[in-house]
């Protein structure tokens, strides 16, 4: 009996300042395959930015998690490129200082607010960016989103959008739902009028907004499962390909899926094709 107990002893190590701390034992089950893609579309400049941290280092993924961020600089304002670049810089810097024992979702939210203040500082209100970021830590997904970029999860037979798009279109719909007397039937909602609203695509929240707009983040983490495929993308991907196409494409192997997304967008060759950027993370056992 004693022998068995000894075996269960928690491994410890002595740190540089001569204190003994237990070594974290990782129960590794899932691994991640990461791919990224980016294209300029028919725009004169690339105003999307992205970053994936720790993707090439398994040790760091265990200790700090895998962090991915996509930011879409707003073409309708000045210098979207600067805005998205700075947003990614602030968010990646915040990830490096993340307290993994604290509330990670709220820290991501704070980071987005800092990024918003930074973008406001450099662009002075005349530029903005969206952002979606995910942290895969301890086989759980934490995320944070501002604007109309998407975090999509393909799991089982479904494609799920995890974040809400901060557009005027969605706000109109939400307002209609809350205003309508019967919240379940929605008889009073005039979908056609909302669909036809020319301002529907305008963002209601973005980084660099003054005062800061809404930040959406995961209140509690989502446990990841074998076979999950995550896609962080700008609206140049999600808005153009649509859910059905993305559902089909994300069932491919990660590398082939990225190829196919690029090919699809190129084949459509829309003259108003926005910059497109995506990070694909496949969760496999």
């Amino acid at each position: 009996m004693r022998l068995f107990k000894r075996r269960e002893k928690i491994p410890k190590k002595v740190t540089a300042d001569a204190t003994t701390v237990p070594v974290k034992v990782h129960n590794v089950r899932l691994s991640y395959i990461v791919e990224n893609l980016q294209g300029i579309g028919s725009r004169p400049r690339q105003e999307d930015s992205f970053a994936v941290l720790n993707a090439t280092d398994v040790r760091l993924i265990l200790d700090q998690g895998l962090f991915a961020v996509v930011a879409d600089g707003m073409g309708g304002m000045q210098d979207g490129q600067l805005a998205s670049t700075r947003a990614v810089e602030v968010l990646t810097a915040a990830f490096r200082q993340l307290d993994h024992d604290g509330n990670i979702g709220e820290q991501l939210c704070e980071a987005a607010l800092s990024a918003s203040a930074e973008v406001l500082g450099v662009c002075d209100g005349s530029g903005g960016s969206t952002c979606v970021c995910t942290l895969l830590f301890d086989e759980r997904l934490y995320w944070c989103s501002v604007g109309d970029s998407a975090i999509l999860l393909r799991r089982g037979d479904g494609l799920y959008r995890l974040n809400r798009s901060h557009t005027y279109y969605n706000q109109l719909l939400l307002d209609a739902v809350t205003d309508s007397a019967d919240a379940y039937a929605h008889p009073g909602i005039d979908r056609d009028a909302i669909d036809a609203d020319p301002d529907g695509v305008r963002l209601t929240s973005f980084l660099g907004m003054d005062p800061p707009g809404e930040v959406e983040f995961s209140r509690r983490p989502l446990p990841l499962m074998d076979g999950d495929t995550l896609l962080l993308c700008s609206d140049g991907v999600e808005g153009v390909l649509g859910e059905d196409t993305l559902y089909d494409l994300l069932s491919l192997s990660p590398h082939a899926a990225c190829d196919a997304i690029c090919n699809h967008i190129e084949d459509l060759a829309s003259p108003s094709q926005d910059n497109y950027t995506a990070i694909l993370i496949a969760v496999r056992q």
């Binding site: 879409d72 707003m74 073409g75 309708g76 304002m77 979207g80 903005g128 969206t130 604007g147 109309d148 798009s165 557009t167 279109y169 669909d195 020319p198 529907g200 695509v201 305008r202 963002l203 973005f206 907004m209 609206d235 999600e238 808005g239 153009v240 649509g242 829309s270 108003s272 926005d274």
Partner: peptide, 15 residues
């Protein structure tokens, strides 16, 4: 352009 895509004057994301 699908719903939700930026399609203002020249399809740019607007505030």
């Amino acid at each position: 352009a699908a719903p939700g895509t930026s399609v203002t004057a020249d399809g740019k994301t607007m505030p």
